[in-house]
Computed example of a mutant assay.
Amino acid sequence: MNKVFEFWAESTGLPLETLSKILLSLTIILFLYLLKIIVLRIVWRQTKNVKTRYQWKRSISFIMPFLGLILVGSVWLQAFRQFGAFLGLFSAGLAIALKDPLTNLAGWFFILFRHPFVVGDRVQIANHAGDVIDIRLFQFTILEIGNWVEADQSTGRIIHLPNGKVFTEPQVNYSTGFDYIWNEMQVRLTFESNWEKAKKILQDIINQRAENIDRAAEREIFEASKNFMIHYTHLTPYVYTSIKEFGIQLTIRYLCNPRKRRGTENEIWQDILSQFSNHTDIQFAYPTTRFYTRGESKGEQSHTSN
């Protein structure tokens, strides 16, 4: 074996010690790569849970490169000491040239240890909102919601954002701390409608829909208050009354899970339409324009259009 190393050293022109370190480094990298494949195959056979598989894959992807860096670095430690001054200057220049990647790497550490969000959370970063589906060294990935799709439904697009965004943009988390959001629905009635009856109907509908949410939200707020200054006096749904330019507006305010917002709106609107259809003294209002024409024989006539 020594003769083989000596032959390679003579062929490449490298010192025998350097060639040995190169071969040892390659052996370490190959070993860690094979170990990663073996571990993941074992995990894949043991479970079919998507979340468990993803967590194992992500952990192995972080641990193996870190472990390889330590092991390979220990092999070349003596050589690094000999070129310490050069490496210092080189590192300084590299830090300037790689400012953005290093910022993203720092952002990854911040996400990893501070946990502003984790995989599975629904977040909004700047103008982008979605569910976090992956977090890597230099970027995290979200499955977009909203945009041209209403009620926070998924668009199907995947957005990759640099980790450095956590230092420059506010992060809105729909999931961490408190699993509910306040949602509002506006119901507009004509001035001639029996708004008191309509308000009672709306209050009864939302009370039935939100009965279980109130109790769950109370528990969530109690747990969230351990880490955040979250305080709500009332969690029960309520219907507010206001006057708009073309009718009476009744605003329903209630708690809902952010991922079930559209579903709850659909159920509530179906109940509203069904209930209001039984009452002739309750009419929906909508914007109208009224104009007048003067006829030669019929006199003044009034016309109304949407």
Score class of each variant (00 low, 15 high):
residue 1 M to W: 09
residue 7 F to G: 09
residue 18 T to P: 08
residue 22 I to R: 08
residue 22 I to Y: 09
residue 24 L to P: 05
residue 29 I to P: 10
residue 30 L to N: 02
residue 33 Y to Q: 13
residue 37 I to Q: 13
residue 52 T to F: 08
residue 53 R to I: 06
residue 57 K to N: 10
residue 58 R to L: 05
residue 59 S to P: 03
residue 70 I to S: 03
residue 76 W to H: 09
residue 77 L to M: 09
residue 79 A to N: 10
residue 85 A to Q: 08
residue 98 L to R: 00
residue 99 K to A: 11
residue 103 T to Y: 15
residue 107 G to K: 01
residue 107 G to V: 04
residue 108 W to C: 01
residue 113 F to W: 00
residue 119 V to D: 04
residue 120 G to F: 10
residue 123 V to M: 06
residue 128 H to V: 00
residue 130 G to V: 00
residue 147 N to D: 11
residue 152 D to H: 06
residue 154 S to G: 13
residue 158 I to H: 05
residue 170 P to Q: 00
residue 171 Q to S: 12
residue 174 Y to S: 00
residue 177 G to A: 12
residue 178 F to P: 02
residue 184 E to R: 10
residue 186 Q to I: 11
residue 191 F to I: 02
residue 200 K to E: 04
residue 202 L to Q: 01
residue 222 F to N: 13
residue 227 N to F: 14
residue 227 N to K: 15
residue 238 Y to D: 00
residue 240 Y to I: 04
residue 245 E to T: 11
residue 248 I to H: 06
residue 257 N to H: 11
residue 265 E to P: 01
residue 269 W to N: 04
residue 272 I to F: 11
residue 274 S to Q: 08
residue 279 H to G: 01
residue 280 T to A: 14
residue 281 D to M: 07
residue 281 D to Q: 08
residue 285 A to Y: 10
residue 290 R to W: 05
residue 295 G to Q: 12
residue 295 G to C: 02
residue 303 H to M: 01
